Computed example of a mutant assay.
Amino acid sequence: MRQVTRHDGTEPEVTLPGTAIYRMREEQTEREYEIRVWVPESAPPASGYPVIYLLDANAVFGTMVEAMRAQSLRPEKTGVVPAVIVGIGYTARAPFPPDRHYDFMMSVPKGELPRRPDGATWPEHGGAEAFTQFIEEQLKPDIERRYAIDRSRQSVVGHSLGGLFVLQLLLDRPGTYRNYIAGSPSLHWNSAWIARQQETFVSRMTDNSSEIHVFLAAGELEGSHPSGVIERSRAFAQWLNHVDAEGVRADFICFEDEGHVSVLPVFIGRALRFVSSD
């Protein structure tokens, strides 16, 4: 790591080696995102680097970058190959800014929303389609102009509401990515929409000729949560493995003695191995 001197008199900040940070504004909603990109030191393969699009970069970008830096040094031992990591985050300092509710969720009818434990109303939601459009039409072309990217080896990683967004992408746009990785996905948030999409998933797969790999995970200590995240995630993986869609493979892991947030480091580490395994 290195320190970057600030000009406002405050303490210097630490940046990760090989990392670029810049901001992008979404054309449709004018929402602003902080994009963080880590690039391997090794030269790209002839086909370009694999690329991982990581949600909630405010919380987990550093975790994934350090795991990648350490493990990709000896891919023959660790199973992790170098890849570009594109973290999509916010200008706020908080690890989980409320803006993520809007970006990660489809519009859900009021009567279908889960009850909030404290009885308060949920933050604004319903921007997932605009967020998807931002990634596909603005961010990805920008990344592909800046870096040597293998478009056949794209992955998307999200946790909690980010995990829900990943699975919404899978159901709505199968084949957009090769690997879909969802940690502790909030499947209870949009269960009616998900059920409808599952019914017609095979018809959307007819135009997809590439393999799709899906990895779902949760922490053992989440078993007591009323959302039923472990059971729902396991059932979703089982459904994918039995659906009549060629080229789809799904894995589910429940990490021992981990909770909804403590699962993040081990989930990130396993996600890197999963995206490298193809």
Rank of each mutant, 00 (worst) to 15 (best):
A67W: 07
E211G: 13
Y102L: 09
V81G: 10
I35N: 02
S203H: 01
G48Y: 01
L54S: 00
R153D: 06
V157N: 05
A235G: 13
S233M: 14
Y90P: 01
H242P: 03
F215Y: 10
W38S: 12
L221T: 08
I149W: 00
G9Q: 05
S210K: 00
D172W: 14
P50C: 03
R74G: 06
K140M: 12
V60C: 14
L167I: 06
A271I: 06
S203M: 05
Q197N: 12
H213I: 04
P44W: 06
R273T: 04
V60K: 12
P226D: 02
G158W: 08
A217K: 02
K77G: 00
E26Q: 10
T200N: 09
I35F: 01
L171V: 01
A192E: 11
P117S: 03
A130L: 07
F267L: 04
S233Y: 06
E231L: 13
G89T: 01
E66M: 12
R69G: 09
Q238R: 12
L161P: 00
V4N: 11
P12I: 04
Q138R: 10
V157L: 15
T63A: 13
E11H: 11
H260R: 07
E144D: 11
S47W: 01
S233N: 08
Y90E: 00
R249S: 09
E144H: 04
T19P: 05
T121N: 00
D150V: 01
P95Q: 09
E220S: 10
P50D: 04
R146I: 01
